[in-house]
Design a protein around this nucleic acid. Structure first.
Lengths: 238, 238
DNA sequence: ACCTGAACACCGTTCAAGT
DNA sequence: ACCTGAACACCGTTCAAGT
């Protein structure tokens, strides 16, 4: 988070001049730990150790581990870059919001798996939602479709991110190429009569350029929304 | 799984006439446990207890908990209903594959969070992938776009499901209506000057008909794919 | 109000034995 | 080959104390 207070960041002696615990300090430390070693390594006990404090101390500021996880997710989404101006093509603005969401989440890969727990509607995430709603409203969507379109884009982006970081986390970049080659070979060697398409597509299935794939899906989704809006098409009743 | 052997399903005495452990029996029991009490309750120790066996016994058939989770996910996707005929509108077939995926996953809600670990490309899931590829090929997509379109639809469906079951799990149907009313009120009471759209959309944000929302996104996505394919539009180079 | 320390009821997995 | 039992190094959270 950019709101992080950098005071005494390099934790020195355990109990000397240590700033008092606060919700924000706890969330920041939790994000740092999850980013460094993965969400599984984020343990209330390890978190307390990182903060130089007894295992139960964080519970004064956070009701439970689950509440902490929610706060972490909300904090990351709250750090999204949001467009300022009200001008420009709505579809380009929506695309840019999608990219912004991905960028913010990738800055804290440890928090990405939290996507699965709840839609991004926490206190700090609300600003991003508001901006997205206003973009869709100016595009001409009806109230109901604004909400539907919003959740559709969010669903796509979350699904993508969650799989993206899961893939990149459990396989360091050095082994990456080798793994892709392995997977390609595996698909190629399947029985041709049973899996003709999997075999034929093996080269593409082995190596998915992640950036391009994100853009492709986002493009198709927004094109689909555009088609729903365009005057040449009959709007569905209700 | 429909391949489940129903022999001695009602586990009686701990060590009398019990069928020998097998990978399949383990996966089936693990799915049953996860469906009943959630993925968090799926513990190697509890699983062993359910199977009437020592904590370490399952490890003879399964290398680690992670491997078991992969097998569970693959088994659920392998249970998808797949269209037989090669006829019909490709977009309708794709829609129906999306629905089939959701139906299969919802039949085992405990396995849904596993979506985040890997794309559905395991041994049993491959049949579903093959069918989807063939539908997209007949639609006229180039090899590369077949794969891109496939992963886009899968990403959307997985993202949707993961949030859907997370929402329905930690809130029983009785409390559901009350929670929705609460959320609506919460959105309505936000400062109007800061969140005009969130306030205006509160009724829709409170209550999202889940079935409809899934169909909406799937429709828009497929419409977007259609637009990429239609002759009236210039196909992108490369 | 904020933090501590011991304790409870759990985990996944290793390892050496058993049959 | 398949299963057991004890053990190791952990969990989240409750509870009674401390300051």
């Amino acid at each position: 988070m950019e709101t992080e207070t950098p005071v005494a960041a390099a934790g020195g002696a355990p109990s000397e001049g240590r700033p008092p615990l606060s919700r924000e300090r706890i969330v920041t430390a939790a994000l740092a730990l999850a980013d460094r070693e993965g969400l599984d390594a984020l343990t209330m006990r390890r978190l307390a150790a990182d903060l130089g404090v007894a295992p139960m101390a964080p519970y004064t500021h956070v009701r439970s581990k689950e509440e902490l996880l929610s706060a972490m997710f909300d904090a990351v989404i709250g750090s999204m870059d949001l467009p300022e101006g009200d001008g420009g093509d709505w579809s380009e603005e929506l695309r840019s919001l999608g990219r912004s969401f991905r960028r913010a989440m990738l800055a804290h890969p440890g928090a990405v798996p939290l996507c699965v727990n709840e839609p991004p509607m926490g206190p700090r995430a609300l600003r991003a939602a508001e901006v997205t709603f206003s973009v869709l409203r100016r595009a001409g969507f009806a109230d109901r479709d604004i909400v539907r379109a919003f959740f559709t884009v969010v669903t796509y982006a979350m699904g993508f991110l969650v799989v993206e970081v899961a893939q990149t986390r459990n396989c360091p970049p050095e082994e990456r190429e080798e793994m892709e080659r392995q997977r390609k070979l595996q698909f190629e060697s399947l029985p041709l009569d049973e899996f003709p398409n999997v075999v034929a597509l093996a080269p593409w299935l082995g190596h998915l350029p992640v950036e391009e794939q994100f853009e492709y899906g986002l493009d198709r989704l927004i094109a689909g929304l555009e088609a729903d809006l365009s005057p040449g098409r009959v709007r569905r009743a209700r």
